[in-house]
Amino acid sequence: MARLTGKVALVTGAAQGIGAAYAMALAKEGAAVCVSDIRLPEATRDAIVAAGGQALAVAADVTSPESVATMVAEAVLRFGSADILVNNAGLFGNLTLKPFDQIASSEWDAVMAVNVRGTFECTRAVVPQMRSQGHGKIINIASGTVFKGSPMMLHYVTSKAAIVGFTRALARELGGEGIRVNCIAPGLVMSDNVRVNPAWAADVVANNVASRAIKREAQPDDLIGTLIYLSAPDSDFLTGQTIVVDGGSVMH
């Protein structure tokens, strides 16, 4: 039996790349999946259904409390519960590397709105349903850059450092209610957006790979084992933790 049979998962930022890979993997393990993105992620939904899974596609703006409340309501109406939330939506792949004093205030605010407040809004929307069930798994997405102090993207690194603190504090608030809150911190993953972004030219990627104990590029599928572990009953005694998945560039 698949490890997530009977569970319902919600994945934000699931139209492509890592988010789509997360959604496909959860469905493969038996979960019914609500996939969402700023635009309707029909391709991800269709791929899950074509592979024999259950999926619902919802257009949702993670910075809008009304929009994410509708997302959760549609998932519960369609599938009957909300057991897993993967807070994957974020701004990264389209950002350019630049000194901190060249980051426009508007760009700073946009990164914080999506990466930090978006995680807050989606979590706040789903927790009432998880409380009513007496269980739930919230999986946030940070970044290995937090532990490196990576330069030239201060807004992104700051936003992902906030997610580590968010995970720890929320885990203590919700632990007594059967809701586990954990975090994955990927290294540089060669998603579609990263591959086409000139900021991640060959030298940057090569230097990143050179810093790893496992010296190869990371692919979205490299994150799946950790995702499924944090979603499944195997991790029921784990909360408040951030697991770095980057081939051993960061060790903490």
Rank of each mutant, 00 (worst) to 15 (best):
A57C: 03
A57R: 01
A59C: 04
A59V: 14
A60I: 03
D61T: 09
D61K: 10
D61M: 04
T63L: 10
T63W: 10
S64G: 05
S64F: 06
P65F: 13
P65R: 14
P65Q: 13
E66R: 12
E66V: 13
E66A: 15
S67T: 00
V68A: 06
T70C: 03
M71V: 00
A73F: 02
A73H: 03
A73I: 01
A73Q: 14
E74P: 03
E74N: 12
E74F: 03
A75H: 06
R78G: 05
R78F: 01
F79G: 08
G80E: 11
S81R: 14
S81Q: 11
D83I: 02
I84K: 01
L85V: 12
L85G: 06
N87G: 05
N88I: 07
N88W: 02
L91E: 09
L91C: 06
G93F: 13
N94Q: 15
N94E: 15
N94M: 13
L95E: 10
L95Y: 04
T96H: 12
L97T: 04
K98H: 09
P99T: 08
P99D: 04
F100L: 14
F100H: 12
F100K: 02
D101E: 14
I103W: 13
S106L: 01
E107L: 02
W108Q: 04
W108F: 14
D109K: 02
A110R: 14
V111W: 00
M112C: 04
A113V: 03
A113T: 03
V114H: 00
V114C: 08
N115W: 06
V116P: 07
V116L: 15
V116W: 05
R117L: 15
G118R: 09
G118K: 11
T119E: 06
T119R: 04
C122R: 07
T123I: 02
R124A: 15
A125R: 12
V126W: 00
V126I: 15
V126G: 09
Q129P: 07
R131G: 05
S132Q: 15
S132I: 07
S132T: 08
Q133M: 13
G136T: 07
G136S: 04
K137A: 14
K137N: 11
I138K: 11
I138Q: 10
I138E: 10
I139A: 08
I139G: 13
N140Q: 09
N140P: 03
I141M: 14
I141P: 00
A142Y: 04
A142T: 02
G144C: 11
G144I: 05
T145N: 12
T145D: 11
K148I: 12
